[in-house]
Computed example of a mutant assay.
Amino acid sequence: MSIEDEVRHGGGVVRVRRLRERGWSERSVRTAVDLQRLQRPRKGWVAVPDADPHLVAAARAGVVVSCVTQAERLGLWVLDRGRRPHVAAPPRSGTVRAARAHVHWAEPIVPRHPDAVVDEIENVLALVAQCLSFEEALIVWEPALDKKLVRLEELRRLPFRGSARRLLECASPYSGSGLETIFVSRLGWLGVPIVPQAWIAGHRVDFLIGARLVIQIDGGTHVGAQRTSDIAHHAELMLLGYHVIRVGYSQLVDRWHEVQALIMRAVAQGLHREK
C-alpha cells in the first residue's frame, strides 16, 4: 500500500502522527508532499489532492464537520441545502477560525477523537436538534434511524436535552425519507391512519390514508415509461374503488397548504373510508 492509499483509507485527510504510528517515516511524508501526491492543510496534517473539501477545511481550521453538513454527507434529508458549512468545536477552543462556516461551540454528547474531522452521528443529531426547527430536525433524525446509522434505544440512553428529548419521543425508525416525515407529521392531527409505501395492486403507493384514499407524489422521475406505468396503476386503483390524489413534490415542500386543503376536503367527504 502506498502512502497515498494509506491516507485515502483513513478518509482522505489524516494526522501525520497516525501515519507515523502505521510505520511511515517523516521523510516519506515529506517526499509525498514534495511530489504533490499529498498536500498539507495544516501543520501535522496531510490530505490526498482530491480529498473532500469539507474535510480539508475542517483539518485546516481545527474543527469537525457536523450538524446539517455532515447530515448531507451521510445522505440524510436536509430541506435547505443552500446553507453555509456547519462545523463543531469545543466550547473553550477560542482560537478556531473557520471562515464562511457556522461554528457550533458545544460539548459533544459522544467524545470526539482528537484525530477526527467528522463528528459522530449522535453529536450530529444533537446539533441538528438545536439548529433547526422541530420538523426540519425530525426530517434528519428519522432517515438516520431508518438507515440504522444509530438505534433509537441507544439514543435514549444518552444525555440529550431540550428539543432533542422531544425528538426522541416522536422519531420513528421506519420513515425512510423526508417526504414521509413531512407528510405524516403534518397530518397527524387528523387522527386518521396514514401508511407510507403501502402495497396495493402490485405496486407501492406513496401514502394510504384510511382504507381508500391514496396520495401519490409526482417528482422529476415521473416521465416517459415511469409516467405511463403510473397512469396505468392509477386507473387500476380507481377500478378497485380507491380515490387517488396526485400532488407534485414542490407542492408538498413549498405549498403545503394546498396539499393539506385537498386532503382535508377528501377526508370530510369520507373518501378515505371503506365502502
Rank of each mutant, 00 (worst) to 15 (best):
H203P: 06
H203E: 13
H203R: 15
R204C: 07
V205T: 12
V205Y: 02
V205C: 14
V205R: 02
V205D: 06
D206N: 12
D206I: 09
D206S: 10
D206E: 10
F207D: 13
F207L: 12
F207S: 13
F207C: 07
F207K: 13
I209R: 00
I209W: 00
I209K: 01
I209L: 12
G210Y: 01
G210S: 06
A211V: 05
A211D: 12
A211N: 02
A211T: 05
A211M: 04
R212W: 03
R212V: 15
R212M: 09
L213V: 15
V214I: 15
I215Q: 00
Q216W: 14
Q216R: 15
Q216C: 13
I217H: 06
I217F: 03
I217L: 11
I217Q: 01
D218M: 00
G219A: 02
T221G: 00
T221I: 05
H222V: 09
H222Y: 07
H222A: 09
H222S: 06
H222N: 09
H222G: 00
V223A: 02
G224H: 05
A225H: 06
A225L: 08
Q226F: 11
Q226T: 14
R227Q: 08
R227H: 05
R227E: 00
T228F: 01
S229L: 13
S229T: 11
S229F: 06
D230E: 02
D230F: 04
D230V: 07
D230W: 02
D230Q: 04
I231N: 03
I231G: 00
A232V: 13
A232E: 08
A232I: 13
A232Y: 08
H233Y: 12
H234E: 14
H234W: 13
A235F: 05
A235T: 08
E236L: 15
E236S: 15
E236H: 11
E236G: 12
E236N: 14
L237K: 03
L237W: 05
M238C: 14
M238G: 13
M238D: 15
L239P: 02
L239M: 15
L239D: 10
L239K: 09
L240G: 11
G241D: 11
G241F: 07
G241Q: 07
G241V: 15
G241N: 06
H243Y: 02
H243C: 04
H243E: 04
V244I: 13
V244H: 12
I245W: 10
I245Y: 08
I245L: 11
I245D: 00
I245Q: 04
R246Y: 04
R246D: 01
R246H: 09
R246F: 09
R246N: 02
V247Q: 06
V247K: 03
V247S: 02
V247C: 09
G248K: 07
Y249V: 14
S250T: 12
S250K: 09
S250L: 14
S250H: 10
Q251P: 06
Q251I: 07
Q251N: 02
L252W: 07
L252C: 03
V253H: 03
V253L: 10
D254M: 10
D254A: 08
D254V: 01
R255I: 06
R255G: 04
